[in-house]
């Protein structure tokens, strides 16, 4: 039998799949690109939820991997490599290396230290990207053309990009769902619940946490590759600490430790930002107030809030 969350995910994917034709029919085809971006951030949020929600590792440097993915596209493009598979591969390898090195150091610590160190490493990468004057330094650079698939420029069509992103989102969701229910996922959840208990039954927890950190980084770098293609513009801002904060917000608003929640949180957050930005140039003020209210008055995110309002108790 399918769980309620599984059903919810299926419904979300079905709705996403029919979005472009509906929007085009309504004459609002432009919004499809907004939805594409929402889905790309959903991939990034899923990856963050793996370590944040299942591993209880509050990483505040996750946007670095978004930046690594985006700059992989820009750099390979300048070398004439436009194939998206090659770009995915390069981004994932670069992200894995960066995550393995910084993760090994950061995971020696706990709590507040871990938050500060991941934040610092994220900032280190941010400054590295700014120093790349060949790629526009502070301002970044626009992408001459979108990536190609087997030499074909299919992604120049927004619809093709939309369905590629949807497909990858679905794959990530499926893969991570399996992972969280696997032996590995069980160990990861165990370390979240009680690290000492896990050691007392014979697990050395660092390799598991580091593996999760690296997997999470690789998935996020895939989102970075897609984001560069969607925006057709790459800048260090993609890797800023505010971006890392936004990724955490997405995961927490959706309900931490639930993949469906992380995905929904990302869709909701980007949607809300887009909507608010249209209403007021000072949307960040209102967004901040909303976030503060949620944290102070509804720990557990919007999912609990919604459940409380509708009186249905805590969702499973």
């Amino acid at each position: 039998m399918m769980s309620r969350r599984g059903m919810a995910a299926l419904i979300i994917f079905a709705l996403l799949a029919v979005t472009p034709p509906v929007l085009i029919f309504m004459g609002q085809g432009f919004f499809a690109s907004v939805v594409t971006r929402m889905m790309i951030y959903a991939i990034a949020a899923l990856s963050l939820d793996l370590i944040l929600g299942y591993g209880a590792l509050v990483s505040f440097g996750h946007a670095a991997f978004l930046g690594i993915g985006a700059y992989a596209v820009l750099m390979l493009n300048s070398l004439g490599v436009t194939d998206i598979a090659a770009q995915f591969g390069a981004a994932a390898v670069a992200a894995a290396v960066f995550a393995a090195i910084t993760g090994t150091i950061a995971l020696r610590t706990r709590g507040v230290y871990f938050i500060m160190i991941t934040l610092a490493f994220g900032q280190m990468l941010y400054f590295f990207l700014i120093s790349l004057s060949v790629f526009g330094g502070d301002d970044g650079a626009s992408l001459p053309a979108r990536s190609t698939i087997m030499g074909q420029g299919w992604l120049d069509h927004d619809l093709a990009l939309f369905y590629l992103v949807l497909g990858i989102l679905a794959l990530c969701f499926l893969g991570l769902t399996r992972l969280t229910m696997s032996r590995f996922g069980r160990v990861l959840i165990g370390t979240r619940e009680d690290a000492l208990r896990m050691q007392a039954i014979g697990f050395r927890i660092l390799p598991y946490q580091l593996t999760a950190y690296v997997i999470s980084a690789m998935i996020c770098s895939v989102a970075g590759v897609l984001l560069a293609n969607q925006l057709e513009y790459v800048s260090p801002q993609l890797a800023s600490w505010q971006r890392s904060g936004e990724l955490i917000i997405m995961v927490v608003l959706g309900g931490i430790g639930s993949l469906t929640g992380a995905m929904t949180g990302a869709l909701f957050t980007i949607g809300l930002e887009e909507g608010m930005a249209r209403i007021s140039e000072h949307w960040k003020l209102y967004f901040g107030l909303l976030l503060l209210a949620v944290v102070l008055f509804s720990p557990g995110g919007l999912a609990t809030l919604a459940a409380r309002i509708t009186g249905k108790g805590r969702p499973e």
Partner: peptide
């Protein structure tokens, strides 16, 4: 007395609010 994650989120929200407030 809240988890660090809540502290991170709430104070991050304050960063957004105060930065934007200063701009206004």
């Amino acid at each position: 007395d809240r988890p660090h994650l809540d502290q991170v989120l709430a104070t991050f929200a304050l960063v957004m609010i105060l930065s934007e407030g200063v701009k206004i």
